[in-house]
Design a protein around this nucleic acid. Structure first.
Lengths: 210, 210
DNA sequence: CTAACATTTTTCCAATCGGTCAAAAATTCT
DNA sequence: AGAATTTTTGACCGATTGGAAAAATGTTAG
């Protein structure tokens, strides 16, 4: 029978492998061309198989994309979830910044996939934004506000603080091409992520130190 | 349809008007769907004309897009160009931040057009990035470094400072959907730009005050 | 009015798109 | 081994795409 039914039914070794290969290839293509810009042929070629063969494993282009997005969202919120009310306030936030920079370095395609989705109006993830993300942010901004009220952090709008963390960190993945072209040659190696980390640590420390 | 007014130029008047209408419509479509995701039919419909009629004014979809990009780049670099070595260092930078936020509010489609282009690897504006933009940034980072060396600003990497300004300000245009969904209802009106401005002024002031 | 020109519409086309289907090939099961 | 099942392929389809051609419709100058 076909394997593209939803449930985690009996999947063979080949099926699991091919699914992985396809998703890996699709991540590459979707991240660089967006949903509309990507073609099944492109993904199939990147995955080393024919288009009908790919469609044997996934019902449709949407199906692949949705699977990719669903996987992404888990890891995407992890760093923010990790922020704990029990830790040292500044250190918790700096940790969050560092983790996000690491993600921009280690998973740039995932970041661009997400960025593409938001840019196009987030049609496929609006529920997640309005639901889990909204709630998570509300929860964490509450913690941050608490810290500020207790004098452990300088007062600032916690929502815009989070936006600025998202923006600055994801920028190094989403606008990587621009960053690399603009940076002078002696800084355009992989060390730009460590430089960014240092800069952002300093910026947010100054911003949040009471 | 057509016509009104007599013309000063034999053929230029109507053409200029239609060109404007088309570019305005195309900006809307390109910003929301990307280059590949946009169709000539969509643009034509938004411009209130038929596809062949649109193609009478522009040779191709690329032609429209390139015209749009070329126009954008002028205004895009204007705020950074405006930064002067003669002004008060901190105030020059805060001015830049404010102008960029204003642009995110007043020209979000242009920002998303640009973001789309960079996300896709900047194939059509690589020359501009590697040329004029690179040089402009080099020029301004030199000024900033000078200010820091003179003790007028706290020391920080000027390139990453500029990146953080780009990222935080453009975020409010490019990720507008997310920003609106995440912000609590009482903050999701148009005042979010003023809040952002206040937050970013504070952040960059703290970051750059010696 | 009419000729010259500018604009618009109608019709069409080749390429590409996402996706189907039946049959071949490979694999697994007994 | 052979049967049953899974995987792969090739041939094909309808819809959409960017775009061309040319006729039809204004518009304007003489």
């Amino acid at each position: 029978m076909s394997t593209d039914t939803e449930g985690d039914g009996p999947t063979t070794r080949i099926q699991r492998e091919k699914h992985e290969i396809i998703l890996e290839a699709a991540l590459d293509v979707f991240a660089n061309h967006g949903f509309r810009g990507a073609t099944i042929d492109q993904i199939a070629e990147a995955a080393g198989m024919s288009k009908p063969n790919l469609l044997y494993y996934f019902r449709s282009k949407e199906d692949i994309h949705q699977t990719l997005i669903a996987r992404l969202l888990d890891n995407w919120l992890a760093p923010l979830r990790h922020m704990s009310a029990d830790g040292d306030p500044l250190e918790e936030i700096l940790d969050y910044v560092r983790r996000k920079i690491d993600m921009a370095r280690d998973f740039p395609r995932e970041s661009r996939l997400f960025a593409n989705e938001i840019l196009q109006g987030a049609p496929r993830i609006m529920d997640m934004l309005a639901g889990p993300l909204n709630e998570l942010v509300r929860e964490k901004t509450t913690i941050i506000s608490q810290w500020m009220a207790e004098g452990k952090l300088a007062k600032a709008d916690p929502y815009h603080l989070i936006f600025s963390i998202w923006a600055t960190t994801q920028h190094y993945a989403d606008f990587d091409v621009q960053v690399r072209v603009v940076l002078p040659p002696e800084h355009s190696g992989e060390e730009r992520f460590e430089e960014a980390k240092a800069f952002l640590e300093s910026m947010f420390t100054r911003t949040l130190t009471p």
